[in-house]
Structures are given as structure tokens and as C-alpha cells.
């Protein structure tokens, strides 16, 4: 009987707030913000003087200068002019600007995803011991190995996939917004906004990047699960404390920095960016390196340890 789907569901039920509602809220807020920025300029439209005078009464002189600056120019004309100017830019410039916009709209979800996955792995085998529910979970015919695999899959695949979908949705909203706006002006919508958005390539690259980060940071995630499986209190202290101690010992006795660099590069996706300057090709090159092989072996050992301690685990 393949019980993986129900085990993944069970993880989702427990963490509905951070796995689903949190990205949903960020998605809605970001989309709202995007549409508000574009929409306010569009809707304010016809008579800037009216809205300007209202603002002036409420907030004083600050807005008067702004109002004066554009006082002769209806906003839709201003926006239209910007759209037209954008259409006149060179293609690579447009691509660069759009690229920034697409990255920017998805950016808030990335650190949130990292924190959510971090906290999930850190507590996935600790909380069940603390609240005694381990006695219920272990009274079901689910092996410890299966439990650990389900938890690894949750943090490595399920949660990133949900956040990834939220990012894609946001970029799709941005895409549709630019297209709808462009249709209102006399520009070539296809050449101006659709082609340089590279939406399909972008998503393929993002997927590749996610797969790469998930594999690259595997020892880090395995380390979190491992600590979570045996720590009797404050798993966070062990998760941070032991690597710091090891790095200090390394510096003290070997004067080396290999471990320090290894930990740094495999913990935070940020540390990877420099390695990936060449794009997708670089990723696969990294995945064939000896260092990556070492990290996989390390991850496997840590996961094996987590299964072992789950087997011994009792309520706290």
C-alpha cells in the first residue's frame, strides 16, 4: 500500500497556516499592490486637478508641488507616454526592466519560503515528541523510514511547489496587467510586453533553480531533520550551536576553511548565486561535482540517523 500521499496530506493539515494561507495572503497583498499601483494611475485619469486639490486640503503643501509639476498633463497621457517610451527602448533594455519587475513581484515569497521550510524541518520530529502525539503516530503501521521520507518530501517538494505556484500566479498577474495596459495605448503589445517577458523560459528556469537549490541544500535540510529527531529541548540551539563549534574547531586545529565554506554554501540559497552566474548550465555542472557527491552522502547519513532516532523516540 502506498501511503505517501496520505502522509503528505497529514503534514499539510498540520501546517495549513504556513503552507497555504501564508503564501495566499502574500499573493493577494502583492497582487493588490500591483493592481493598485497601475490602477490608481489609470483610474485617477481625466482630472488630476480635482484629486490634487483634495490631497492638498488633507496633507498640505507636499502634494501641491507634485500637482503643479503635472498639472497640465492628464495622467493617462503621462502613463501612455511612459508606455510608448518603453516601447521605444531597445529589446535587451526592455527585457532587463521586465526581468527586474518579474523578479521583484515574486521576491517577497522567497525568504518566507526559506523560513517556513526551515521551521518545518526543525520541528518536524520534535513537536510530536513534545505534545505526546508521537504515541499516536507510532501506534499506526507507518515505519520510521517512511515517516522521515514523507517529512523530507513535504519540505523539499510540497511546500516549495505551493510557493512556486504562488510566484507563478503573481508573475501571471503582472503579465496580464502589462498586456491589458498596453492594449489601451498605441504600442505593439506583443513585441513590447509579451516577448521580452519570456514567461515560459522564466518558469522553466525557476523550476530548474528550485530543483537545484533543493538538491544543493539537502545536507542542510537533513541536518535540521536529524537534530529534530533527538534534541530534548531547543532544537534551534543545537542546529546552530554544533556547526559553529565544528567551524571553530576547524579554524583552531587545521586553520582551514573548507567546512566553513561548505556549511555556508549549502545552507543559504543566497550563497549559491555566485556559482550560478552562467545560468542553468552552471547548475548541472555543480550537480556533477565531487563536493555535491560528498553532500549527498552526508545527507543520506543524517537522514539515516533521523530514522534511527525516530525508532528510539519516546514522548519527552
Amino acid at each position: 500500500m502506498n501511503m505517501l500521499p496520505i502522509l503528505l496530506k497529514r503534514e499539510f493539515w498540520e501546517h495549513r497556516k504556513t503552507f497555504f494561507y501564508l503564501p495566499l495572503i502574500i499573493l493577494v497583498l502583492s497582487a493588490f499592490f500591483l493592481i493598485a499601483v497601475v490602477g490608481s494611475v489609470q483610474i485617477a485619469g481625466g482630472d488630476i486637478i480635482v484629486s490634487g486639490s483634495v490631497q492638498m486640503n488633507e496633507e498640505g503643501l507636499h502634494h501641491r508641488s507634485e500637482t503643479n509639476e503635472y498639472s497640465n498633463m492628464p495622467v493617462n497621457a503621462l502613463f501612455g507616454e511612459q508606455v510608448s517610451q518603453f516601447a521605444l527602448l531597445a529589446e535587451d533594455q526592455r527585457e532587463r526592466m521586465l526581468n527586474s519587475a518579474y523578479l521583484l513581484i515574486a521576491t517577497p515569497l522567497v525568504p518566507v519560503l526559506w523560513v517556513v521550510v526551515f521551521m518545518y524541518f526543525l520541528t518536524c520530529l520534535y513537536d510530536e515528541r513534545k505534545d505526546r502525539s508521537i504515541l499516536f503516530w507510532k501506534s499506526m503501521p507507518v515505519s520510521d523510514a517512511m515517516t522521515v521520507i514523507a517529512k523530507l518530501m513535504t519540505g523539499l517538494v510540497v511546500v516549495p511547489a505551493i510557493y512556486f505556484m504562488a510566484m507563478m500566479l503573481l508573475q501571471l498577474i503582472l503579465f496580464l496587467t502589462t498586456v491589458v495596459v498596453a492594449l489601451g495605448y498605441s504600442v505593439d503589445t506583443w513585441q513590447t510586453f509579451v516577448v521580452p517577458a519570456n514567461i515560459m523560459t522564466r518558469w522553466l528556469q525557476m523550476t530548474a533553480f528550485f530543483v537545484f537549490v533543493a538538491s544543493w541544500c539537502l545536507p542542510f535540510f537533513a541536518w535540521l531533520i536529524f537534530v529534530s529527531s533527538w534534541a530534548r529541548s531547543v532544537p534551534l540551539a543545537w542546529v546552530i550551536g554544533i556547526p559553529i563549534l565544528l567551524v571553530m574547531l576547524e579554524a583552531l586545529f587545521t586553520q582551514g576553511e573548507w567546512l566553513r565554506a561548505f556549511i555556508k554554501e549549502h545552507s543559504f540559497p543566497g550563497g549559491l548565486i555566485s556559482r550560478l552566474a552562467g545560468g542553468v548550465g552552471d547548475m548541472f555542472q555543480q550537480l556533477l561535482s565531487v563536493e555535491f557527491l560528498v553532500s549527498l552522502v552526508l545527507a543520506a547519513l543524517l537522514l539515516y540517523g533521523a530514522v534511527y532516532f525516530r525508532g528510539k523516540a519516546d514522548e519527552l
Partner: peptide, 14 residues
């Protein structure tokens, strides 16, 4: 020992 966050329906499903 049932986890506090679990609902009755989820318990049955699980």
C-alpha cells in the same frame, strides 16, 4: 495523544 490540530474528519482519513 491525538494531536490537537487534527480534525475528526482528518483523523478518519489518516
Amino acid at each position: 495523544i491525538l494531536p490537537r490540530w487534527l480534525s475528526v474528519g482528518e483523523a478518519l482519513d489518516y
